[in-house]
Design a protein around this nucleic acid. Structure first.
Length: 746
DNA sequence: CTCTTCCAGCTTTTT
DNA sequence: GCTGGAAGAG
């Protein structure tokens, strides 16, 4: 096979040197996927059997794309035999094969984040912990952190550091919740997303023979997006690669944007320590973007310290300068950005699919949707609630999961009274109580409901019996019938259809359509399974969709549409024109990143990711005022805008007559706060500041922070806060109720 | 047990 | 501004 014409010399080296550990630092748009696919093709052409190659990605989409590209190089059959997929799907598969070793059955249920949060809430209720103090999100975050760091409930309870942190957070009993949660998951034959990695680690730790089996099997290991691996993933890879040491990791430290989910940028930075004999390949030529865009991105990321040294460059055209749109309000920002898209589409006959609007938070999408709808521009939104998160789909899924695994308590709770059959909370709690007394599951209590005549009324038992029989009949079906038959039967026999039938509101109709859509998905699964000679039973179907996201059933059908998504979900994608919007302090960078420089650095990498999505043209926008959680805020423009080297930014054309397409005269921005330029104040002439005098722009004096300038005001009543820039200190947010502020006497 | 109304909460989220 | 969950009435 001859790759020399397809690859540059750096890429070629990375492809051809297949032995030993390799670190590929792949800058944005530098042909990372190309290197991975050709490297795999090279291995296959050397005679390495496909089933001995393990290739790990973070998204199903990335895995599928790679599979297609490899199939094009070496043919379908070989490509299909590769062990290629996401961490979660590959190790989920291995765990199903080895489940009995760990005390699970191969049909274990996978819980998504929502399911596990519900379970945590339930456990907290049983432990009588107040969910005002024990915020379920925070608790879940702690447990997830622990799992990703391979901290067992015992270790969690014993760790002095962790206990101190939890005590400080006024949540000293998280270890109890964690313990119950872990026990119940196991009892229910359930794994959450973190378990797919944690249990793999446990498997490899406790069963050396099994580890060795997979070490021998996977002669070559490749990992995509290595900068986004967490500790748990890192350790799995390290263990698997220990025997052959043929490990190739590809990544870009500048694009590490998932530390909030436990990703550890140091994994890529420390690769050289784990594999001292490694070879390093730096891919620095960007094939995606114009010189201007690459220069812009470089000038921004240069503000981060601690990077793997590299210089991304482009030999593409110079390209157009960056357009910065400044709008008075958030709504106006939407209108102006959409106008610009409209103008480009008209003047340059650009297809609408060539445009993407990228924002920091999903909540920002609404204004752009409205503006696009008004202009009759087709668009597609990514993110928000995905198909499998919809209530009606989750209801149906709960029945299906129960049919496969009756011990799945969350699913049982979800449908025991849906559709309404008069089984309320009290009854379920009685069952839970009975289950606890026998140290068994909720289903176990329900299936022995006759023995509970002491605590349940005959009437209640009469309501529970038919439900129990219903689930048993579904369970019976799954053994022999195809997934499609079971789902079809569940939809009708459970009463879901009758329940939805009565609702003829637009939402109700959409719910029915979603159920239909689900049926289509099952049918599609059955057909592929049949074609590929796999079982088309319900269990493998559920296993497959548990790890699917809405980006996966992306039917980019019909007409070309503008793409709207968060910057996070845009990673790995590219568009001719990219609009990065909402570039204001507190929003991008997020306010939550303001207290630590490492979080700010991550925000900057996120901005870098956004910029490097663009091929030809970049449009950046910010608004002077915007609604945020129902309040008006007026944050200054993002510092990231100032970090772009000015030579890349388009300077507004001098006004010659009225501009043709301007919809609204642009008022001057009142407050482009630049640090350290706060006017002096005469400290001799001060008076206590009246609350109404504290407005953006006003210069104030604070006894300990000195002179500062008000950036913005948030909150109402006693909660009113001022964000003030004190050049001698920092930007502070002060509660006006307490802050002793002074203004100059008029 | 069920329905309504009210109130707090609220980044990002490949799996 | 929107959503999900809790509380209270029927």
């Amino acid at each position: 096979m001859d790759f020399t014409h397809e690859l540059n010399s750096r890429q070629l080296e990375a492809v051809m040197n297949t032995k030993g550990p390799a670190l590929v630092i792949a800058g944005a748009g530098s042909g990372k996927t190309r290197v991975l696919t050709y490297r795999i093709a090279q291995l296959l052409s050397q005679g390495v059997p496909a089933y001995r190659i393990l290739a790990l990605t973070f998204t199903n989409k990335a895995a599928r794309e790679m599979q297609h590209r490899i199939a094009a190089l070496v043919g379908e059959t070989q490509a299909a035999n590769l062990w290629m997929g996401t961490f979660h799907s590959i190790f989920g598969k291995i765990l199903r094969l080895e489940a009995p070793l760990l005390g699970y059955t191969p049909d274990f249920t996978i819980y998504d984040a929502q399911d596990s949060k519900n379970m945590i809430k339930q456990i907290m209720k049983e432990l009588q912990l107040d969910d005002k103090i024990y915020n379920p999100n925070a608790v879940q975050g702690r447990i997830s952190m622990a799992k990703n760091m391979l901290v067992t409930p015992d270790a969690y309870a014993r760790s002095a550091d962790i206990q101190l942190a939890d005590k400080m957070a006024k949540k000293p009993l998280i270890h109890e919740i964690y313990r119950y949660y872990a026990t119940r998951c196991k009892k229910n034959n359930v794994m959450d997303f973190d378990d797919l990695l944690l249990q793999t680690n446990i498997l490899f730790r406790d069963f050396p023979d099994t580890l060795e089996k997979y070490q021998r099997k996977f002669e070559y290991i490749l990992v995509d997006e290595y900068q986004d691996t967490n500790y748990s993933q890192y350790l799995i890879i390290k263990k698997l690669a220990a025997l052959n040491r043929n490990i190739c990791v590809v990544g870009d430290d500048a694009q590490s944007i998932y530390s909030f989910r436990g990703a550890r940028i140091e994994n890529i930075l420390n690769f050289k320590n784990d594999y001292p004999e490694y070879s390093l390949y730096k891919l620095e030529q960007n094939y995606r973007s114009t010189v201007t865009i690459v220069g812009t991105a470089n000038s921004v990321i240069a503000h981060n310290e601690e990077q793997i040294p590299k210089e991304l460059f482009s030999r593409n055209e110079e390209g157009e300068k960056i357009k910065v749109i400044r709008a008075l309000t958030d709504r106006e920002e939407g209108v102006q950005v959409v106008n610009e898209i409209y103008r480009l589409a008209q003047n340059e006959h650009q297809d609408y699919s060539h445009f993407a609007i990228l924002y920091r938070t999903n909540a920002q999408s609404r204004l752009f949707e409205e503006a696009l709808r008004k202009q009759n521009i087709p668009y597609r939104i990514y993110g928000g609630t995905s198909f499998y998160q919809r209530k009606e789909v989750k209801d149906l899924l709960a029945y299906l999961r129960l049919a496969v695994n009756q011990d799945d308590e969350e699913s049982l709770r979800r449908v025991i009274n849906y559709p309404r059959r008069g089984i309320g909370e009290t009854t379920v709690e009685q069952l839970r109580h009975a289950a606890r007394a026998h140290d068994s599951t909720l289903w176990h209590a329900l299936s022995n409901v006759e023995s509970l005549h002491d605590c349940l009324s005959p009437g209640t038992i009469r309501k529970l019996e038919p439900f129990k029989t219903l689930i048993e009949s579904f369970a019976e079906m799954t053994k022999t019938e195809s997934a499609y038959h079971v789902v079809h039967r569940v939809v009708t026999a459970s009463g879901i259809v009758t329940d939805l039938e009565t609702d003829n509101t637009p939402e109700g109709i959409s719910r029915k359509e979603n159920i239909q859509e689900f049926l289509n998905a099952v049918k599609a699964f059955s057909e592929t399974a049949y074609k590929e000679n796999r079982e088309d039973k319900l269990a493998p179907f559920l296993a497959e969709i548990a790890l699917l996201t809405d980006q996966d059933n992306d039917q980019s059908n019909d007409l070309p549409k503008v793409t709207l998504m968060t910057v996070h979900s845009a990673k790995g994608l590219e568009f001719p024109t990219v609009c990065v919007v909402g570039l204001e302090e507190t929003l991008f960078p997020s306010i939550r990143s303001s207290h630590s420089s490492s979080e700010l650095a991550e925000e900057r990498r996120l901005f870098y990711v956004a910029l490097t999505r663009a091929e030809k043209r970049l449009i950046l926008s910010h608004a002077t005022t915007r609604y945020h959680n129902g309040e008006i805020i007026s944050p200054p423009p993002s510092r990231f805008l100032q970090e772009i080297h000015p030579r890349y930014i388009e300077t507004p054309a001098p006004r010659r007559g009225a501009p043709r397409h301007q919809t609204i005269a642009r008022p001057r921005v009142t407050m482009p706060v630049k640090r350290a330029e706060v006017p002096e104040i005469n400290t001799a002439e001060l008076q206590p500041a009246a609350p109404e005098a504290i407005v953006p722009g006003v210069v104030v004096y604070h006894p300990s922070f000195g002179t500062g300038q008000v950036i913005s005001i948030e909150g109402l009543g006693d909660n009113r806060k001022a964000k003030i820039d004190f050049p001698q200190h920092d930007i502070k947010v002060l509660l006006l109720k307490f802050a002793k502020l002074f203004t100059e006497k008029a």
